[in-house]
């Protein structure tokens, strides 16, 4: 899975983001990224190659983190 993070109106990779925020904030972001990864993996068949899935994590939303994914190969079940 490829993760992109929207932070203060701009998009970053996790490497770029790690130099912009503090360790505790990075901990929260990484924990959330792991949670999203787990949640999406549960929707796919076991051992499926999920590298084509792109996830945008919006950190700017006032109501908490929001993740939006694109699944061009239709690997994830809708439920």
């Amino acid at each position: 899975m490829e993760f992109i993070f929207r932070f203060k109106g701009k998009e970053y990779t996790i490497n770029e983001l790690s130099s912009l925020i503090e360790r505790t904030e990075l901990f929260l972001v990484e924990d959330f990224r792991g949670y999203v990864e787990q949640t999406l993996a549960k929707k796919a068949t076991p051992n499926a190659d999920l590298s084509s899935i792109k996830v945008l994590i919006d950190m700017d939303s006032e109501s908490g983190f929001k993740a939006k994914y694109t699944d061009p190969k239709g690997l994830l079940k809708s439920n």
Partner: peptide, 17 residues
């Protein structure tokens, strides 16, 4: 406390396709 914030973030989060 940090874990509490993390749990809050996950509970309130939305994951959409």
């Amino acid at each position: 406390h940090l874990n509490g914030i993390s749990t809050l973030a996950k509970n309130e989060a939305s994951i959409e396709g």
